[in-house]
Amino acid sequence: MEVIQLENVTKIYKLGEVETRALDDVTLNIKEGEFTTLVGPSGSGKTTMLQMMGCLDKPNSGVVKINGQDVIRLNANKRADMRRDMIGFIFQFFALVPVLTAYENVELPLLLKGVEKKERHERTMEMLNAVGLSDRVHHRPDQLSGGQQQRVAIARALAPEPSLVLADEPTANLDTASGKQAMEVMQKLNEKTETAFIFATHDPRIVAYAKRVVKMQDGRLVND
């Protein structure tokens, strides 16, 4: 079953008189449990594509469906609900809430989702265990290494059991060992769950983990 469907999606950015076609009539379907990488040079539209899939932005034309539901016409609150219930994000710069501990960061999406306290605690600890950080639960982001922060971000993205995890250059700021560890964690979680992973990356090491590679250039898909 398709988790996400992009049909003839076009996104144009205007900077003064200059128009940039970040996505140009893109059609792409991602199925449950896929481990996909979007590759391509800078400016090829990878991040824009993730933003469309993640309900963070709307295209100028085309259709974006998540689990069969057209998300473009949803209002801001419904799109927030969609992000909360269906999508996990992993960003290049870890993007943890700086004033919350590792535990609280992972717990936050569960709180937003209204998960009961006991279940929330079990799920949070389960995810921190899964990423190997059960001994760092009370550490704040500034007390963790980059690799550890990214693993917290992975745990947070997966805690609410989303249908889809979108990762934008997740290893770009990690050393080789940390990047490998993060990818292995994600690969394991992908194998254990039905969650689909989509990575935007330049990193050939990530591509090696992918079951599917989608190449982009100038806002178009050039190879799938």
Partner: peptide, 16 residues
Amino acid sequence: VREMGILAALGMKGRQ
């Protein structure tokens, strides 16, 4: 601003 963006990405609504 970034923190607000993270919270919004996690599904936090404007009113929250």
